[in-house]
Design a protein around this nucleic acid. Structure first.
Lengths: 235, 235
DNA sequence: AAAGCTATTCTTGTATACACAACACGGGTT
DNA sequence: AACCCGTGTTGTGTATACAAGAATAGCTTT
């Protein structure tokens, strides 16, 4: 049946990514019931690969499956989200600490490039572009830690927090402060100062999870699909 | 068909745990091909729940699924294992740091109880019992961090490293050194010294991942199912 | 005899069918 | 009128059937 692609890979894998996309973009806000039949029809496949995708997403924590009661998008309590940011901060700090000690010349170049790319986006005042390049920047640091498992864990959690980060980039002039923090982080890593790199990265991430009120506002915004944002951009 | 229980929970869930058990106990050593039909017959169920269990295990990293080529128990390269211990050490350190600041009176009691239970096992020279109580000890610290997400992550990784930890408890007098390290950790946490708690826990875990030769030996032992152990227990 | 190609077989991936539990709705009773 | 119980419907959980790709073995050819 294959409604999506000539399927060189597992269909359930692709479905998982599609469903994940629908969750993190807010198309399926927290609390949504994920009916297997509906999803199956929506994707033009049978229930089997849908189930497999849901199980996979459930084991990452992106959906919640209760026996005989189906799958739902879990409600992210604000404190839960803070916990996740707290862990993210520590993972990033660890990446920075290791990267400062282990980074290779080629990676140093990549780090500088990523940083300069962010600068361009900041100067242009483009939050969406900055958001995208910011991901690259952090990913370079993950890889420079030379701990593949750590990099995987960090990437996974980063992806899961993606929607929240993204919305927070629009508050105040977060983009500018974020960029100046990046500069200090680059200095510390390139200078081999692992302690500074570590603590700066921790602080860089934690600020996003610390502002409770911002966070709650962000969550509310996710529940009501971003009409305000669209209106803002459109008018 | 339900060969296992009157199934109050998902069958694939239980099958996943059973298969996980077979993997971590060495019944399915790294590199083993996990044939869906064989597993299905072995458990007296159809392929469907087996597939779901395998997918779930794959998303935790406990098995590896390559499209159209089936599931296998991944070969754990020693450096990969070191990476995992490095991350585990950092998670434990974070738990300790937070626990030292946030632990409640009731949890303080539980920590002391767990520690004293370990002491009993150490005095009795029972590595298996010590191993078990050691898990409880660490779990108390995870919970005392009052970061549920962190506790989940730490528990998951701990489980995944279980078989390696377990075998390493038998080398030298690891049990005794482990216990004295525990004592210092308890002091630091109860004394509210988060920095000490953090660095002691980091060191406590990292030693297990640092000794490359021990680790390689452990891996080899996993490939040749533990006949020595069985003979020891049987005779 | 060795190498390459083809056919067969075995296993995974997907679809469909069936069973059973949970929820909803309606009728009866207190 | 409100609450309880039974029945119907909906949707999950498991089994089975079918299709397609990958591995293998046998055959042909050089």
């Amino acid at each position: 049946m294959q409604a999506l692609t000539p399927t060189p890979v597992r269909l359930s894998e692709q479905l998982g990514e599609s469903i994940e996309e629908r969750i993190v973009t807010g198309m399926y806000p927290p609390g949504t019931r994920l009916d297997e039949q509906e999803l199956a029809e929506s994707f033009g496949v049978s229930r089997t690969p849908i189930r497999e995708a849901l199980i996979q997403l459930a084991s990452i924590g992106l959906v919640e499956i209760r026996p005989r009661r189906g799958a739902t998008v879990p409600e992210m309590a604000p404190d839960r989200l803070c916990e996740m940011f707290e862990v993210m901060a520590e993972l990033e700090a660890m990446c920075g600490r290791l990267a400062a000690r282990r980074i290779l010349p080629a990676e140093q170049s990549r780090l500088l490039e990523a940083h300069q790319a962010c600068e361009a986006a900041r100067a242009a005042g483009d939050p969406d572009l900055y958001y995208q390049l910011n991901e690259v920047f952090h990913r370079v640091i993950y890889d420079a830690s030379h701990n593949g498992f750590l990099a995987e864990q960090a990437t996974a959690l980063h992806r899961r927090l993606r929607p929240f980060r993204r919305l927070q980039l629009r508050v105040r002039n977060r983009m500018n402060t974020s960029f100046s923090e990046h500069a200090a982080i680059v200095d510390a890593i390139l200078g081999g100062d692992s302690d500074t790199a570590s603590s700066m990265l921790r602080a860089h991430v934690i600020v996003q999870g610390e502002r409770f009120t911002d966070l709650v506002a962000t969550l509310r915004q996710m529940h009501n699909p971003p009409e305000a944002e669209l209106a803002q951009a459109g008018a």
